[in-house]
Amino acid sequence: MLLAVDRVRKVFGTAVVLDDLTLDVDEHQVVALIGASGSGKSTLLRCVNLLTEIDDGTIRLDGEDITDPRVDPDRVRRRIGMVFQSFNLFPHMTVLDNITLAPVKVHRRAAAEARNQAREWLDRVGLADKADAYPDRLSGGQQQRVAIVRALVNNPRLLLLDEVTSALDPELVGEVLTMVRDLKTEGMTMVLATHEMGFARQVADRVVFLDGGRVLESGPPEQVLGDPVEPRTRQFLARIIEAGRL
């Protein structure tokens, strides 16, 4: 097991955001988290990346308890890549500098080597001509692809994708999803929070429906999305279909 989230609790003020949540992710597995806004998807991803401190329970990565306060969070994060809904590229750096920052500063790789690798990646995702551009010259879809590359060049064990298409215009969603699909083929372990049910069905090995900070239903995509057991899941999916997103 690569990631083991065990009875995790997270409280913001009086709101219980993660309530005794347990979730396991195997290596090379892709898990899609679905659920309404506020159901805890993003918080769970942030907790796994130690950007948010949990209030109870444990999270293990490769068997190591990363929620132990003696663990250096920087060292844990080197093994986890994260992509955000709003891309969060560094606006004062070129695309190439965005990508090479962590390899050079964190992983102590030679600058020239890191730049070569970054260019190879950009070439692969069709953004070779954007290497020296600043993020504000890129479309949302291009920015998000750069953000994914920025996470991948560090060879993470696990990739967390937090609603990576939610801030994109509909016609730009496809290019990002194609990239994620390719990553799955390469065997990348991923946990992704998403509102794209069609995409979850295609790419996920397992779909997890979160409700009120708990895992309400979990299973293969055909089952959870096609024939959900829980009434809450059915209700949620019905609303999604109404909104035309399935």
């Binding site: 709003s86 560094f90 964190v106 560090n154």
Partner: peptide, 21 residues
């Protein structure tokens, strides 16, 4: 804060985040 989150998620330390981001 999302800029800090992005930098820290890449494994940059607090100091490196301040300095570079």
């Amino acid at each position: 804060p999302s800029q800090l989150a992005a930098a820290r998620s890449l494994g940059l330390s607090y100091r490196q985040t301040m300095r570079h981001v």
